[in-house]
């Protein structure tokens, strides 16, 4: 049996065949969603110069309030 080439790299941790396959299955969808989100963020950031700063503050508040 020929192993998938990515499995031939020496790993000290067993990534698990199932965990590996699942990532291959969901990668396309999650990748597309991720790209879409980044485009939307970039689109709106044109209108708000302080977007990054706001996002950081929001993140901080989120972690403190959560």
């Amino acid at each position: 049996m020929n192993l998938h080439p990515l499995f031939e790299a020496p790993l000290y941790l067993d990534p698990g065949s199932g965990s590996f396959i699942l990532q291959l299955i969901i990668a396309g969808g999650l990748g597309a969603l991720f790209m879409l989100r980044s485009y939307i963020t970039r689109f709106f950031s044109i209108f708000s110069r302080n977007k990054t700063e706001e996002a950081e503050t929001e993140e901080l508040e989120h972690s403190e309030n959560s």
């Binding site: 020929n2 192993l3 499995f7 065949s17 199932g18 590996f20 396959i21 699942l22």
Partner: peptide, 13 residues
Amino acid sequence: RTQKSYADKAVEQ
């Protein structure tokens, strides 16, 4: 579920 389906199976080329 995928872990169960692929338990002890190597991922084939």
